[in-house]
């Protein structure tokens, strides 16, 4: 019962069903080719996958619609935790391997490398813009008037959740892309750390504002009813704390991973003969 969706969504079924199938198939194809995926990457992928699906397409979504602090947990998972885990697993090669060989794969590959896709992709992954969109979306959906409408309109609610999840994937891929900045011309580690700082500080401010605001910022939860009795101010404070502290902690953890990679890379550079 708890695993059934509160509001059934074909989009969720197609996205998660398709991605899950591609990954399972990709794992098998890579194993047969003699390059099996390390266990830690499989674990990271499925953990992120299950977390994202659970908060979007089970009864958890009911509680997220009728409790502000659970809504904040939902977005913390979609925009941060699940997206970080999925991108840390570097799933693209596996997903590609899982796509059945043939004409369709060829067409999809050509479409993905076409200018129609690549130009918008490069624009939204331009680091200052990617950081702006990442933090801007958090602020945008938490503007009281916007939040009010998003919680009342089902289509807008879906746009809100999917925009957070997809933006989380794009942003954390920019940050966690495992390809070498030197050889693959990806974003340098120093710039990645600056971008994380750039997005984390405003989030801290927003969380602190929500926690300390004496006003009832999100009265939509009073109007629509809460999933269980809780004082509106307590709900807001809990939601504010979840906006304030965990994203900052996750940002710091990702920075540690990046610093480790940076050290690893400079060690490799030293070892390599001139």
């Amino acid at each position: 019962m708890y695993l059934l969706p509160y509001e059934f969504s074909w989009l969720a079924v197609v996205f998660f069903g398709g991605t899950g199938l591609l990954f399972v198939r990709g794992q098998r194809v890579l194993a047969q080719a003699g390059t099996p995926l390390p266990g830690w990457r499989i674990a990271l992928f499925w953990l992120g996958f299950v977390l994202a699906y659970s908060v979007m397409h089970t009864q958890f979504d009911y509680f997220a619609q009728f409790m502000f602090f659970i809504h904040r947990i939902q977005h913390l998972v979609l925009h941060h935790l699940a997206a970080i885990l999925l991108m840390a697993s570097n799933p693209w090669k596996v997903l590609s391997a899982g796509f059945p060989e043939g004409r369709t794969k060829h067409i999809v590959a050509r479409a993905l490398s076409s200018r129609v896709i690549q130009i918008p992709y490069r624009i939204i992954q331009f680091p200052p813009l990617a950081g702006f969109i990442f933090v801007g979306l958090i602020f945008f959906w938490l503007m009281p008037e916007v939040h009010f409408k998003a919680m009342l309109s089902q289509p807008l609610y879906l746009v809100m959740n999917w925009s957070m999840f997809l933006d989380g994937i794009l942003f954390w891929w920019l940050i966690l892309d495992p390809r070498s900045p030197v050889r693959a011309k990806t974003l340098s580690f120093g710039k990645r750390i600056i971008v994380i700082w750039f997005v984390t500080v405003p989030q801290l401010g927003l969380g602190a504002y929500i926690v300390t605001s004496p006003a009832n910022l999100y009265d939509i939860y009073d109007l629509c009813g809460r999933a269980w009795p809780i004082a509106p101010h307590d709900d807001q404070v809990l939601g504010g704390v979840l906006t304030w502290i965990p994203p900052g902690m996750m940002g710091v953890l990702v920075m540690v991973v990046l610093l480790r990679r940076m050290l690893h890379q400079s060690e490799q550079t030293k070892v390599r003969p001139a």
Partner: peptide
């Protein structure tokens, strides 16, 4: 549910 509300 249609009116995006709840009760219990």
């Amino acid at each position: 549910k249609r009116m995006r509300a709840t009760y219990g």
